[in-house]
């Protein structure tokens, strides 16, 4: 079982869960989104994830912790990507 479960799997799971939920919510969106907006959203998502920092009690790189000072909120980034992906697979080509 240890192969499937690394010691602190709890730091990875939120990222995956956020991605799946993001896809689900993304499928509820309609309309077209330009590539410029996509890039803007991704950039702002990255920025925000640095501001939010990794959740407390996260220690590994997998959890988004680079150093004591700099860490990423991975669930936030994966949720953003999930939403964009979900939007493009469900109603991506829809008319404006």
């Amino acid at each position: 079982m240890i192969v499937i479960f690394p010691e602190v799997l709890g730091e990875v799971t939120p990222t995956l869960v956020a991605f799946v939920l993001g896809v689900i919510l993304g499928t509820q969106m309609e309309g077209k989104i330009s590539s410029r907006t996509t890039a803007l959203v991704l950039f702002m998502g990255l920025l925000a994830s640095i501001l939010f920092e990794a959740p407390i009690h996260f220690w590994s790189v997998l959890g988004g912790v680079l150093t004591e000072q700099i860490s990423f909120a991975f669930p936030f980034i994966s949720a953003t990507i999930g939403i964009l992906l979900g939007k493009s697979i469900k109603k991506g080509g829809g008319s404006e």
Binding site: V17, A18, G22, L25, V41, A48, P55, F76, A79, T80
Partner: peptide, 22 residues
């Protein structure tokens, strides 16, 4: 508004996934 909506959704998901720690 659209970027903000997407980021708000992502923020909501961040909040729910870190429920047990924060």
């Amino acid at each position: 508004a659209l970027p903000v909506v997407i980021l708000l959704l992502a923020y909501g998901l961040l909040v729910v996934t870190s429920a047990s720690t924060s």
